Simulated assay, not measured.
Amino acid sequence: MTFELAPELLRDCIFLTDWPLCRVLLLNDSQYPWFVLVPRVVGAREIIDLSEQQQLQFWQESASLSKLIMSVFSPDKLNVAALGNMVPQLHVHHIARFKVDIAWPKPVWGLFPTKPYSQEQITALKAELAL
């Protein structure tokens, strides 16, 4: 079997890059810097489904993404969460939150309609992130 991204993630996210273990995605909602790490491991639903080496690699990549988000966006809070209630494929959200964002301090899920990125915004964001 080969790795395939869940249809919901394909629909809702923009591909940024592949790291050694994870696919790095940007959720297509310009209201929040919202990234998703997806380990490219067939059948993984929980972090404990990864081998010990994969878990270590995952946490290293999560820390790298978190540091990148903190340095580029300087958020008031960085939310990192693996829910999977709607999309069972293992994926972990990394969301930069600001006291001035439209959902603060509530969770971002489903609170407001999404505002997709323009192609210009995507290009600028990729350049800023150097991904």
Rank of each mutant, 00 (worst) to 15 (best):
Y117F: 01
P116L: 00
L78S: 04
F98R: 12
N28R: 01
I14Y: 07
A44S: 11
L16S: 15
F58T: 08
P20H: 09
K99A: 11
S66D: 09
L78K: 04
T123H: 00
V100H: 12
V80S: 10
Q121V: 02
F112K: 11
L16Y: 15
D101H: 03
H91P: 01
A103S: 14
R11A: 15
L90N: 00
I47E: 12
F15K: 15
A63V: 12
W59R: 14
I122G: 00
L90C: 02
P107E: 11
M86G: 10
L65H: 06
Q55M: 14
I47T: 14
P88G: 06
E61W: 13
S30R: 03
K77D: 00
P75T: 04
H94L: 05
L83A: 03
E46V: 04
T123D: 00
A82S: 11
V38K: 02
Q60G: 13
D49R: 13
L50G: 06
V108K: 05
P39A: 10
V80R: 13
Y32T: 02
F35Y: 14
I102A: 11
G43W: 07
N28S: 00
A44W: 06
F73K: 12
K99R: 14
S71R: 13
A44C: 09
S30F: 01
L65E: 03
D29H: 05
L65D: 02
V80I: 14
I122A: 01
L111W: 08
C13R: 03
E52D: 15
G110S: 06
Q31T: 08
V41R: 05
Q53L: 15
A63T: 13
M86C: 10
F112V: 12
K77P: 03
P107A: 09
K115P: 02
L37T: 02
M86Q: 13
Q60K: 14
L16E: 14
S71D: 08
P107F: 08
K77T: 07
A44H: 07
H91I: 03
E120T: 00
D76G: 11
D18F: 06
P107L: 08
V38Y: 01
P105I: 08
N79P: 04
C13N: 04
A124P: 02
E61A: 14
K106L: 12
Q119N: 04
L21H: 10
L111K: 11
Q60V: 11
G43D: 13
I122K: 01
V100K: 11
N85A: 04
R23A: 08
T114S: 10
